[in-house]
């Protein structure tokens, strides 16, 4: 498959853009960032099309690129947040006079677009917070599994893990989510 062929490239975009956009949005919790990552994913796929190995799955390759870009953004955010904590007075004055440049002020990450469509907004916010608190790898496994319906084998291929490790990651992440929701009194009642 030659991703530099315009028709192939367009088809790949149509097939995977929605999944990649949602993966980025769920990992980054920011719509603008998710859009940036989606664009960067396809630009990178185009420029590095020659690194795609024949016989491999395009979706796995694109998801891996997208995931790595999301990790880069998350690390950059962590770094900038740490930097802004070093100068709280400066940040406060910048926010006051409208020239804020700190990360939190420029890109508030607590906007919850999908939650407006559901009744239980508190639960949505709580779930987002709990997912944001998960380690990167666990968060990715949860998102790929729950929202992209991937098998543990596929998740392992994207993350460079064995299927068993991916499964264990999901188990740990779900435990944390469940106990977090329980503590907040928002755990849904289910019968098995």
């Amino acid at each position: 498959m030659n991703l530099r062929d315009p028709e192939t490239f367009r088809k790949a975009y149509e097939a995977h853009s929605k999944g990649l956009f949602n993966l980025a949005f769920r990992l980054l919790s920011d719509r603008q960032w998710a859009e940036d990552v989606l664009q960067e994913t396809f630009v990178r796929a185009f420029t590095r099309a020659d690194t795609f190995r024949e016989g491999g799955q395009v979706s796995t390759w694109l998801y891996r690129i997208c995931m790595n870009l999301c990790y880069d953004h998350l690390r950059a955010r962590k770094y900038r947040m740490a930097a802004s904590l070093d100068a709280p007075a400066q940040a406060a004055s910048a926010a006051a006079d409208g020239s804020a440049t700190t990360w939190a002020a420029v890109l508030p990450s607590d906007t919850v677009e999908p939650a407006t469509e559901i009744a239980d907004r508190d639960a949505a916010i709580c779930v987002r917070r709990l997912i944001d608190e998960l380690p990167e790898r666990e968060r990715t496994v949860v998102v790929l599994r729950q929202y992209h319906n991937m098998t543990f084998q596929e998740i392992g291929e994207i993350l460079g893990l064995t299927a068993r490790t991916a499964q264990n990651c999901l188990r740990r992440a779900k435990d944390k989510l469940y106990f977090g929701l329980k503590q907040a009194g928002l755990a849904p009642a289910v019968g098995m």
């Binding site: 367009r10 975009y13 853009s17 929605k18 956009f21 949602n22 949005f25 769920r26 719509r31 998710a34 859009e35 989606l38 664009q39 396809f42 630009v43 677009e113 999908p114 939650a115 469509e117 559901i118 239980d120 639960a123 949505a124 709580c126 779930v127 987002r128 997912i131 949860v142 729950q146 929202y147 188990r171 992440a173 779900k174 435990d175 989510l177 469940y178 106990f179 929701l181 928002l186 755990a187 849904p188 009642a189 289910v190 019968g191 098995m192």
Partner: peptide, 29 residues
């Protein structure tokens, strides 16, 4: 039950569509 509860809670996030102008922006880049 805990696994089911966690899965159910995750269902609160619906899918989003990427902005329609996104592909043109990628091609421009």
């Amino acid at each position: 039950a805990a696994s089911k509860a966690a899965s159910t809670s995750l269902a609160v996030w619906g899918d989003l569509d990427p902005p329609s102008a996104c592909f043109d922006q990628i091609m421009a880049k």
